[in-house]
Amino acid sequence: MEKQRLKLKVNGQEHELYINPKTLLVEVIRDHLGLTGTKRGCDTVSCGACTVMIDDMAVKSCAVLAVQAEGRHVRTAEGLEKNGKLAPIQKAFLDQGSYQCGFCTPGMLMSCEALLEENPAPSPEEIREGIEGNICRCTGYNSIVRAMGAVAKGNYREE
């Protein structure tokens, strides 16, 4: 299979890759770029562990052909921090203990971040709907909702 050239912007960085066009975005992120924060937990677009942001949207990267992300900005959990400074949602997760095994966490953070960027003050119901596509087997979700609520309240407003 002839490889295709793909120019991809990930976490603010431009990359040039040569890939088989059937390569999924999650495979490019994890295997070609070595960004293993984003995980995979299923084969049926169900679990959300592979959630990244494409432009301002949360998407499941296991259900996106990498070639379709050309010209867009892909953001993963590794891109949330700025020069080592954690994003508000990351700080909130630490304060609330919104993770346990941590496997769903990178994807969960991206769903949360996408929601906050669209709606900086979501209600608890909106928060739950916002992360409905992400399965967490450990936390029971309520600590994640609390973390989002804290950010929504403005507890982590950047100076």
Binding site: T36, G37, T38, R40, A77, E78, L86, L94, G102
Partner: peptide, 19 residues
């Protein structure tokens, strides 16, 4: 007390066997 593995887990740095 914050979970001591927190930074690794919330920044995508934690390496699981999967990785």
């Amino acid at each position: 007390v914050h979970n001591v593995d927190g930074i690794a887990k919330v920044t995508g740095r934690a390496i699981y066997t999967f990785d």
